[in-house]
């Protein structure tokens, strides 16, 4: 299955990955090849198979509702590019 240049660009935008123009062609080919493999898988009859939620055949262990984490803000904020008044600062978000 082929994938178009526009689809590659849309997926890149959604994933916030910046592509240079000369990268898109190569990706069209690579992703197209992967989709060909998916097409092969699609041809298998899965009508009696439940969708797989997780590759491990196990279920989630649940945790007791007890506080185990304590304030480490100073340590975390030491590696943040910008902070003020205890807040992480990010480029202005306008909706």
């Amino acid at each position: 299955m082929a994938i178009s240049r526009e689809e590659i660009e849309k997926v890149a935008l959604l994933a916030r990955i910046r592509l240079e123009d000369n990268q898109v062609g190569a990706l069209e080919k690579d992703v197209g090849n992967i989709l060909n493999l998916v097409d092969q898988l699609q041809s298998a009859d899965t009508s009696s198979v439940e969708p797989l939620a997780h590759p491990l055949d196990a279920t989630q262990r649940l945790r007791a509702d007890e506080v185990t984490e304590h304030d480490q803000r100073d340590a975390f904020q030491r590696i943040a590019p910008a902070t003020e008044d205890g807040l992480y600062l990010v480029p202005r978000v306008i909706e």
Binding site: R63, D65, E66, V67, T68, E69, D71, Q72, R73, F76, Q77, D85, G86, L87, Y88
Partner: peptide
Amino acid sequence: ATQTKIFSGTSTAYGAAPNTQASAVDLAM
């Protein structure tokens, strides 16, 4: 009204100083 977050043992008490109840899991470290 749990004591802690859904995926980490960080307190959910209302009104704490900013980011003092944001642990490594909550910050997606």
